[in-house]
């Protein structure tokens, strides 16, 4: 398959997610494709919940427990989280 290089456009969040997924999949971060579904790496519903807890603690957000199922790739997840963060901006409104 493709061997993605850490693209220069990688945001901090994306590389953080990639490192978490690599950790749970027991793979090198370089082997994780941010466009592939998490299930490709054997991350099942238990890991999806664990990851959800990780993200909440890392970003200080409250998320739906299904967030990693609803946004099943790292790119999709990062996109969704950035959007959520933008909505919880300093102006105060949390949706």
């Amino acid at each position: 398959m493709n061997t993605p290089e850490p693209a220069p456009s990688d945001t901090e969040l994306r590389s953080w997610l990639r490192a978490r997924v690599a950790h749970y999949a027991q793979l090198d971060a370089a082997a994780i494709d941010t466009t592939a579904t998490l299930t490709t790496y054997g991350l099942d519903s238990v890991y999806a919940l664990i990851l959800c807890g990780d993200i909440e603690d890392h970003l200080g957000l409250a998320l739906e427990p299904t967030v990693a199922w609803d946004h099943p790739t790292i790119d999709a997840l990062a996109g969704h989280l950035e959007e959520t963060l933008a909505q919880t901006s300093p102006s105060g409104e949390s949706r």
Partner: peptide
């Protein structure tokens, strides 16, 4: 030959989604 990793990834994906088991 270079597609075999992709086939393995598809298998893993199926196992995770249909059976819900982490198949490393």
């Amino acid at each position: 030959p270079d597609e075999l990793a992709h086939v393995a990834a598809r298998v893993r994906d199926r196992l995770t989604r249909d059976v819900g088991v982490p198949a490393h």
